[in-house]
């Protein structure tokens, strides 16, 4: 009897601890739900629209953050996410436009992203150059290459990627439109978040990645190839950033424009740090940012600040600063980050 009670108390404590640990997320979540319902005037259609828009805005950010995370977890800073996304958006669009096949376009975007990841790895791991410079190289090169080799007037013969309705689930109220009638890359993103989390924290690959990021020489002494792990992770991450690029040109917009990433790669970097180098955390941060972007339409709906749209445009960025400074505070990156590794 006593044992059961102790067990019960322990369970309650664990639950309380979890609730306490997540308190700011829960408070923020509750506030957001209340705000969404209120601004939508309790209309189902408005609430659905705002949630669907949140998901759309968060997709490229969470993908970019996952890319950065794979690099940083293995000890390599990647500030070139912006460039990786831009190059992939361009590569994916050019290939899709030439072949007329969107799937080949998406695959090309992913391949371009992986190539960019390999270049980053080549400079920062292979040649042991400075990682921040390597990332800056990607950003500049992407602007240069995508503009230098871009031909105006290209279109997608087959249009952009179309939503896939998941059978009867798509007919559910609210959740149906928000979660079950999305476009392919959005589904893939929702799948990638738990997959990367599982990979990082529950598999040998993840353990090795984190070991290399925290203490590379110790990892090397037990036979893990530091250089190999970093190459692998940067190339995988590049592929994920490539997916974000393909999302922009092939799923969201349906064409390529110069500089179309417009800072999303940098925001993704912020989302990664905000989410404390954890896929679930980054997803939460991206959703928060996406929500703050989506809420702009609600402001229009309520006719608030419509004459000064600039203030509405600031909301996502101000919210991020306030939440970061107010609730999250200091974050600790992997220990070996930024240092080129050499065996001597």
């Amino acid at each position: 009897m006593g044992l059961v009670m102790a067990d019960d108390a322990k369970h309650r404590n664990v639950l309380a601890a979890i609730v306490y640990r997540l308190r700011w997320w829960l408070v923020t979540g509750a506030l957001l739900v209340a705000f969404t319902l209120w601004t939508g005037e309790f209309h189902q259609a408005q609430t659905t629209a705002i949630l669907a828009s949140t998901l759309r805005h968060s997709t490229p950010l969470v993908l970019g953050a996952l890319c950065g995370m794979l690099g940083e977890r293995s000890g390599v800073i990647n500030i070139g996410i912006e460039g990786q996304m831009l190059m992939s958006a361009w590569g994916g669009f050019m290939v899709a436009s030439a072949t007329g096949d969107l799937l080949i376009g998406v695959l090309a975007g992913v391949a371009v992203g992986m190539l960019m990841g390999a270049v980053l790895a080549g400079i920062s791991v292979g040649l042991r150059g400075d990682q921040i410079i390597a990332g800056t190289v990607l950003n500049i090169a992407a602007i240069g290459i995508t503009s230098f080799f871009f031909t105006q007037g290209r279109t997608l013969p087959s249009g952009k990627l179309r939503p896939i309705r998941l059978g009867p689930l798509a007919d559910l109220p609210v959740a149906g439109r928000v979660l079950f009638s999305n476009k392919p890359i959005t589904y893939l993103t929702l799948l990638l978040v738990p997959v990367v989390w599982f990979g990082l924290f529950r598999t040998t690959w993840g353990l090795r990645t984190r070991a290399v990021g925290e203490h590379p020489s110790a990892a090397e002494t037990v036979g893990i190839s530091v250089v190999g792990m970093r190459y692998l992770n940067l190339i995988l991450g590049g592929g994920i950033a490539g997916l974000a690029g393909a999302y922009l040109s092939l799923e969201a917009v349906g064409s390529f424009e110069r500089g179309m990433t417009n800072g999303k790669g940098f925001v993704a970097l912020a989302v990664m740090i905000f989410g404390r180098w954890n896929p679930i955390g980054a997803w939460g941060a991206a959703l928060l940012f996406g929500y703050a972007s989506a809420v702009q339409t609600q402001f229009q709906f309520r006719d608030w600040l419509t004459s000064d749209p600039q203030f509405v445009g600031m909301i996502p960025f101000v919210v991020t600063i306030v939440v970061l400074a107010g609730f999250v505070g200091r974050a600790r990156p992997p220990a070996s980050i930024g240092q080129p590794y050499s065996r001597e």
């Binding site: 912020a270 600039q310 600031m314 200091r330």
Partner: peptide, 19 residues
């Protein structure tokens, strides 16, 4: 507050742009 300057400076860029 220990807020990472990379995040805050990026965010403030966009705020400044709008302002």
């Amino acid at each position: 507050r220990g807020a990472h300057e990379v995040i805050t400076t990026i965010m403030l860029n966009f705020v400044a742009l709008n302002l």
